[in-house]
Every structure is written in structure tokens, then in C-alpha cells.
Write a protein that binds this DNA or RNA. Structure first.
Lengths: 190, 190
DNA sequence: GACTCGAGTGTACGACTGTACACATCGGTA
DNA sequence: TACCGATGTGTACAGTCGTACACTCGAGTC
């Protein structure tokens, strides 16, 4: 502020910042993971993203739009990972393996993701507008599972994934990999 | 305020109110179910419970204590229902039946309970002090299941209950009862 | 009646919130 | 060069928050 710091490209349009909106959304997810939706505010996100407070109202119509965009991105990211993981499976055995991997480590590989998932679910449980995001998410994972299993089995696996993931998020004593393998086998009958 | 309204028992100690603390805790859960932990404030709870704002700081050291007590009560209530439901089962078939009932309708019988569960999980996912509550909850339900099933199966059923309950909370297309029955049978091998 | 004591309450304070909007600033055009 | 329109920002406002604390008031004792 007091001194113009040495900008490598002063003429390259320091003022316009096309990626800023995207960056704010990404940072917003970090903030949510850190302090929860309850603690997330324009000011906190602005500070974390290193943008002025005015940028918040400039890029988003309000807090709700920001949260919606952030969780939409999160949902898409997780669904992508899920689909990609399932897509690599060639046969039924590999598909079972993929499901185990998803539960045990692959898709939700950080406490951050688990926390964000809960935040989203909590929002969606109360506010129908956020349910679009969870519905899309569920539909995609269901479809990915149905490429390998019949619809009923897919639904059960989906529920199992959900449940075991929650146990992980809540830090229930870690379930060994063999328990997951066993559960998947019982459900798929493999 | 302006006029002393006709109190049926003016001499019965209108001033002292021993049940007030309990009442605040109950009302607090209603408020949380209504507007979420994020929207819950001393003022809102006080208004809903029809007590002056000062009562909040008088009875609770702070917001955190209030939330903790409220969710402790909620967890106990749900666990009680769960245990009672499982306790009635005489044999393995009845136990399977009870699990199905818990998932399909019994324990979480209102959207309110589903919403509160998510709020609690979200808190617990971030704040370890709330994990005491979820841990106690999980331990009790696990123990109740282990009276009828081996530990591994109990853990799987627990996860299944969790997962299918979430699907219900998020208003995923309702799973028919027969799907639940089928899933329980596959896991228990009944 | 006078007095004491603790239960309970109204109010005020500083911190923080979302949001609006007047203003600064810069790339492009003539 | 002078100007304009769009992009972006600092600041102010009205409201809500948690919390502290001086106070009221009623029940019990003499």
C-alpha cells in the first residue's frame, strides 16, 4: 500500500483478475472446512483469499450464492473422483475392489473432505436448494455403481459407503480393511 | 409488564423456577432443528423458551455449554429409543426385524431428528468435545446390536443404518421396505 | 414490622455481521 | 492528449451477536 511492490508485469493488467471469482470459491471451501459454515463470513473469506471485502459483493449476490457455488464445486470434485475410480474397474471383482478403495481411502482422503461433506449434508437436510447438489452427487455415484451392479445392490453399496465414511469422519475406532472387504462381499454376494 | 396478568398461583413461587434450565435445553433443540446451530443464538432460544435473555448466562456458562447439554440430551434420547427397540427382540429373526424397523421408521421418526443428527455430526466432525457424545451414542447402539449379532456384523449393520438414514434425511427417493429387509438379510446372512 | 441473601433480570457494551454505494483506477478509443 | 466506460474497492450503516454486571425482588428469619 505505502510502496508499490515490484510487480513483475505491471502492464499485464494487474487490475483485472479473471480468475479471482474461481479463487474465492476455492478459498471459501477451505474456510468452511476450517471454521464451518457457521463461522464463514465475507470478511474471513476475503482475508483468506487476499482480496478486498468489496470483491465479495462484487462477484456474488450474497452469502447464499457463494455457499451454493462452493458446494457445487465440491460435489462435482468428489463425484469426479468417485466416477473415475469406478470407471477403471474392468470386471465385477475389480468393481468390488474399487468400492473398498473408495470407502477405505480413495475418495475422501482427507479430514477436510469429510468435514465438508457433513457441512453440505447439514445444509441440505434443512434447505432444499442445497439438495440439488446432493441429489446430483447421489445420482452420479449411483449411476457409476450401476455400471457394475444391479440397482438394488448399487443402492445398498451406496448406503454402506455413506455409513462407513461417517464412522471414519467421527473417528470411530478405525475399521480394518478386511471388515470393509467382508461387508462388500456380503452385499454383492461375490 | 404494565399489568400483572392473572397468575393462577401467584404465591406458588412464580419467581423461582427449578425446571427452567431443563426447559431451555429442550427448547434449544427445537431452535436448532428449526434454524440450525449456525442460526441459534441466546436471544432466539430465550424468546422461544419465553425466558429473559439474562437467564441464558445465568444458567449456562456460554453458548458451548448450552449446545453440549442439548446434544447430550438428544443423543441419550435417541440411544434410549434404539436400545429399547432392540431389547424387545427375542431371537435372531426378531432382531433383524428390529433393525429394519429402526431404519425404516422407528427411531428417527421425524425430519426434526434427522436434521438434529446432522447438526450433531457436523459439530463432532470438527470439534472433538462433541465427539464424546457421538462416541457414547455409537458405543450404545453397537452394544445393543452385539447382543444379537457378532461384532463384525454389528458394525456393518451400524454403518448400513447410518447410510440409509442419511439417504432418508436428504430425501433421496424413498427406499422400499423390501430393500431394507434385503440389505439386512444379506449382511446378517439370515 | 425490618432485615438479609441469593435467585433471577434488564440493559448496555464492544465486536462482528451482510450489504450498499460513492468513489478510484485503468484499458481502450479518438 | 483527453476522455469514457467498466472494473474493482474502501468505507459506512444498520443490525445482531455473546456476555458482563448492577440491579430488582421475593422468601425466609427474627
Amino acid at each position: 500500500m505505502t510502496t508499490a511492490d515490484a510487480d513483475p508485469q505491471p502492464s499485464a493488467g494487474r487490475r483485472t483478475d479473471p480468475g479471482r471469482r474461481d479463487r474465492i470459491i476455492d478459498v471459501c471451501l477451505d474456510v468452511i472446512a476450517d471454521v464451518g459454515v457457521a463461522g464463514t463470513s465475507h470478511r474471513r473469506v476475503a482475508e483468506a483469499a487476499d482480496v478486498p471485502l468489496g470483491s465479495m459483493t462484487y462477484h456474488f449476490s450474497g452469502m447464499n450464492e457463494l455457499l451454493h457455488e462452493a458446494f457445487t464445486r465440491f460435489g462435482t470434485t468428489v463425484s469426479d473422483q468417485f466416477e473415475r475410480r469406478m470407471a477403471t474397474a474392468a470386471d465385477a471383482a475389480a468393481a468390488r475392489e474399487a468400492v473398498v478403495a473408495i470407502i477405505a481411502e480413495d475418495v475422501f482422503d482427507t479430514q477436510r473432505d469429510l468435514v465438508l461433506t457433513h457441512e453440505l449434508y447439514t445444509l441440505a437436510a434443512r434447505d432444499p436448494s442445497f439438495r440439488d447438489i446432493t441429489n446430483a452427487w447421489m445420482a452420479r455415484s449411483r449411476r457409476a455403481l450401476e455400471r457394475h451392479f444391479d440397482p438394488t445392490t448399487a443402492r445398498m453399496l451406496d448406503a454402506l459407503i455413506e455409513g462407513l465414511t461417517i464412522h471414519r469422519a467421527l473417528d470411530i475406532e478405525p475399521h480394518g480393511r478386511e471388515v470393509v472387504v467382508d461387508a462388500v462381499r456380503r452385499i454383492t454376494g461375490g
